[in-house]
Design a binder for these strands. Structure first.
Lengths: 228, 228
DNA sequence: AGGCCTCTTGACGAAATCCCTACGCCCCGG
DNA sequence: CCGGGGCGTAGGGATTTCGTCAAGAGGCCT
């Protein structure tokens, strides 16, 4: 699992971005100022740092400089200022890429992927095997381990599947699945689960009628059983 | 262990919810007003806050706002008011989820699980040993400590077993088991207990006829005896 | 508008679980 | 010796829950 250190002085932004990144399978550590950012980089060894330049204690560019004195960890900079100066200074100091606010989460994710790839961060994607299929919940792809065959999953199918595979071996209660995927008003609609689990089995299980990885626990919920 | 800060101005509710949450393995800290809630958040570093909006000193939404100025800790809001305004204000201020009174404990627990999960709070596994079996009541798994063998328990079996293993070494009265698992109208149906305890023994005890961990206390109830 | 994809909803046989009855055992006191 | 209370085991019918087919509803792109 890839660890990202998020550095921003606004708690709301930290919160929103954390939720998004965790949903994509990243492990997220947050810091609200430069001091903590430097400390956490040392203790948590993040694979990637996403850094807002406007920090309360230390100037963002200075943070980059201090990091670069001892670690080559990739750094993606965020900044609200549109002037190019920041960008130049940040890149000079050793940042790897730069995103200007306001930005879409997809843009940030794309930059993060690009930077980690360039740095050869162990492409240890949070990929999961279901039979002969390789499921990458971060990239949202399913492809056959041998051939180049791929499977397409819909948004709802991904949501449901992610809920299951991120808790390998654990029972996930029907209630949890329904509230998370369809919303709290759907807690009683268990037939949605049957419907969509059935679809996932048809797309991913070798023998959909005898599932080996997407298991039913009658009356309780479902369980993703990883390969032994 | 996950620490939950419970904030509510009614002592009975605090007490009832504390008991329930502790039985599920949470560590619980309580506060009866906003001032204490803010102070305890700083000193106890809870992993999750469950907050009633109607507080005697500070408005609940204001409490959320003050918390959010410095911490991204997940917040689940409780409110008796049915109007949507509260909900919107609370979520705007930075709450993560919302439960309207009256609510079932299961619903609250589901929301708590969803929120802590989204925030990447790591849930420890209260795993219990019964002979050569390792029982994980959170994941709902039973697996052999040496081999990869597993045992499957049904919903009712899990319910009953959880009641026993969460009170290690203590006698659990027949009436308590029946009330909790089958409901208050079944307090006289002691043969259900014999039936299901028998099934659990066959699945978990080395010698079901001579149980060493799921013990009968004739006329009173049953007791889970942990390994020495 | 038309077609495609996805989500929602209904219906029904199949499977798993639960509920319930029956029966035998042990211990104890009458 | 007998009978009763409490316990453990077995088995089958009843009920709930599940899987799947099928089709309608709604959104989005062409």
């Amino acid at each position: 699992m890839i660890t990202v250190l998020l550095v921003d002085d606004e708690p709301q932004i930290l919160r929103a971005m954390s939720i998004n990144l965790r949903a994509r399978g990243y492990r997220v550590v947050t810091a609200a100022d430069g001091t903590r950012a430097l400390a956490l980089t040392a203790t948590e060894h993040p694979d990637l740092i996403v850094l807002d330049l406007g920090l309360p204690d230390i100037d963002g560019v200075e943070v980059i400089r201090r990091l670069r004195s001892w670690t080559p960890v990739p750094i993606v900079v965020l900044s609200g200022r549109r002037t190019g100066h920041d960008k130049v200074h940040a890149l000079d100091a050793g940042a790897d890429d730069y995103v200007t606010k306001p930005f879409g989460i997809e843009e940030l994710l794309a930059r993060m992927r690009a930077v980690t790839r360039r740095h050869g961060v162990r492409e240890e994607r949070p990929t999961v095997r279901i039979g002969r299929w390789e499921v990458d919940t971060a990239a949202r792809t399913v492809r056959n381990a041998e051939s180049e065959e791929t499977r397409h999953l819909t948004k709802t199918e991904w949501h449901l599947l992610t809920m299951l595979v991120t808790r390998p071996g654990r029972l996930v209660a029907q209630r949890d699945l329904l509230t998370e995927v369809w919303g709290p008003t759907y807690v009683a609609e268990t037939h949605y689960l049957r419907q969509y689990v059935g679809q996932l089995r048809r797309k991913l299980e070798d023998d959909p009628a005898r599932p080996r990885h997407l298991l039913t626990e009658p009356g309780m919920g479902y369980r993703f059983q990883p390969e032994p």
